[in-house]
Design a binder for these strands. Sequence first.
DNA 1: TGGAGGAAGTTAACATGTGTAGTAAATTTC
DNA 2: GAAATTTACTACACATGTTAACTTCCTCCA
Lengths: 151, 151
Amino acid sequence: MTSVPEMRPFAESLPMALLQAREVAMRYFRPLLAEHDLTEQQWRVLRALTSADDALDAGELAARTLLLAPSLSRILAHLDERGFVTRTIDPTDQRRTLVELSPLGAKQVAQIAPESERLYAEIEAVFGDGELHALLESLHQFARKADPDPS
Amino acid sequence: MTSVPEMRPFAESLPMALLQAREVAMRYFRPLLAEHDLTEQQWRVLRALTSADDALDAGELAARTLLLAPSLSRILAHLDERGFVTRTIDPTDQRRTLVELSPLGAKQVAQIAPESERLYAEIEAVFGDGELHALLESLHQFARKADPDPS
DNA sequence: TGGAGGAAGTTAACATGTGTAGTAAATTTC
DNA sequence: GAAATTTACTACACATGTTAACTTCCTCCA
């Protein structure tokens, strides 16, 4: 009989709790994104570019969207095909690719944003405004303090 | 000029905060899993079976690991090949597949568990024991209260 | 100054995630 | 008791996660 040493209950582990919470949150947004034929990751890219309000190089964009470079590369190819972003080589450093939201891409974001905000407000309402902000603060603090490699 | 309506800053959104926090947490465990040639998802399955301490049907296992049935199906095929789990048809309900941790699988878990617990303790130490428990409690509460479809 | 070493990005290969459709066994319904 | 429904799993298609290899370009220093 191979007995397993004491481990905390699976369902109560931090990684599972985070995954479960994210799953719950994303259930609000998935139908909206599906309506507009956007994956979660594609939306993250459009969102990050909107928030940056300027061109970003691929590395910076990867960091902000928490995507790996190879994934981002493919995603950008798709978004470029659909006309939502433009890619240009940085003239000051030709290794870098500058990514910018196109007018069509901005239009797409503008079309989705209101409904997205409505869903976010729904989450706030259900969970409680104060609780949500406390959770966010706790998450940010965790990311700051626990990051083993704050690159 | 297509102006985008007010949206909360991308980096402060709940889905990104959850993703970022999970990313930070997983950075502790990935090297350990890689050493043992296990993906995150495979480990979730082994962990869930260990925690259950009994055979689970595929549906229940999918629910507990937050995996979709098609993903779980493939993962189980791989774990079966490696001899970590066994799959048998439930004699009392032949629709169901019962999944059980094999002795070899249990041995594998037993080999990883101590180091995993050590890493978990490291996170507790860095972030603070109280803060971590508060965060976990908040995450569980969010999952309970905000789930739009508590199946 | 030019070549070694490093950095940025892409491509490739394989596994998993996600959604849709299909299949088989059990259950329900009439 | 047979058709319709339910339940669980499987098959397939496409997108992403992950690692490694490769290309091109930049930096730096002997």
